[in-house]
Design a protein around this nucleic acid. Structure first.
Lengths: 191, 191
DNA sequence: TTGACAAGTGGAGTCGGCTCCACTTATAGT
DNA sequence: ACTATAAGTGGAGCCGACTCCACTTGTCAA
């Protein structure tokens, strides 16, 4: 890759981040990003085939931050398995809320979802959730752990999440409900 | 509503259905629908604020068909609760597969999802799933049944579903996994 | 240093979703 | 039958996503 091309890529990300901070993600057009970055639309699209892909790349940092934070917690904690699960889930919910717009843009872009599922990003998330799910699920069929982690993430996609919030569920209610669904135990006592 | 307007509405649905049969849903533009129906884009948009809304309306029939079919089954069956749940879920999966494109268009249209959640359609689905979930879930907190039905549907949205299929899960695997997640029992015996 | 050319650029242009509004028309009250 | 007018129409045109390709430029081999 040519040096000037790398610079452009960096500039795009920086400019887009800036604009996203100033206006909502949805309100910023690709053309606006290109113009603000001082490049042509063609160059922008050479780097990112669409807006969602740009958002995906931008989310990278944030997801890695979240995963690092969660792993840091897991490394130093002495909590029991159930608490660990709930802690990580809480952090995930907080993270999602913070990056709402960006994640919505990814999840609604029909074309990027396949790419998202294949990304290291998604893989890292799954690994993390598998780690905390394993001790709290009962005995599992092969593949079941991965499936449950997938479902956990599917349940919390932006549209679904937004709907539940609208229904009046607080982040804590959500935590409770999901815990009750995912945690296998001889009848969980309430919080 | 004026009589001619009603005719137009009917014509739109018929024409769109026709075009969707000939080409993929994604490939048909709103302009193409308008032209084929012999009306202007403005008239089309007066009836449906966007393509997803049109798909939503068109799905109405199909969802009602599915619900009717499921209720018909429930009415005449003597199967046990677990089998009933699985039967209904199987039918739902079949229905989703049949209407894949239409449902994807609804679920990926960022703007319609809120409308979808508020629609009678969605409400009917939820009622149906609550009905079959109740006897197979353990004792539930208030609101938990509705929550689980919501999650069941969220888990099976087109992107998630497509991903699982790509991962190599058959419709039957999906059924098994979901059953194991949603059915509370003193350790379910395998199929 | 220089020339060849792969790599990269940018903006004009296409296409589709969607809006706006000047115009037409069904219909209800007289 | 004859308006008045609310309801409905349709197409020109906007805006944003995305493509295409003639042109520029960094790089590397000689």
């Amino acid at each position: 890759m040519r040096k000037d091309a790398q610079q452009n890529r960096a500039k795009i990300l920086a400019t887009a981040a800036q604009l996203f901070r100033e206006q909502s993600v949805a309100a910023v057009s690709m053309k606006a990003i290109a113009t603000a970055a001082g490049i042509g639309p063609g160059t922008l699209y050479r780097n990112y085939p669409n807006k969602s892909a740009l958002c995906l790349d931008m989310s990278m940092t944030f997801i890695q931050e979240f995963v690092a934070d969660a792993q840091q917690y897991l490394y130093q904690t002495t909590d029991d398995a159930v608490t660990q699960f709930k802690q990580v889930l809480t952090r995930y919910l907080r993270f999602r809320e913070r990056r709402l717009q960006l994640l919505a843009s990814i999840e609604n872009g029909a074309t990027v979802m396949p790419a998202y599922y294949k990304s290291d990003l998604y893989h890292e998330l799954i690994q993390l959730f598998m780690q905390v799910l394993k001790p709290v699920s009962g005995p599992l069929l092969p593949g079941e752990l991965k499936f449950r982690a997938d479902m956990l993430i599917a349940m919390l996609k932006s549209n679904s999440y937004a709907y539940q919030r609208e229904q009046g569920l607080s982040r804590d209610d959500l935590l409770t409900q999901i815990s009750r669904l995912m945690i296998k135990s001889a009848d969980p006592l309430k919080k």
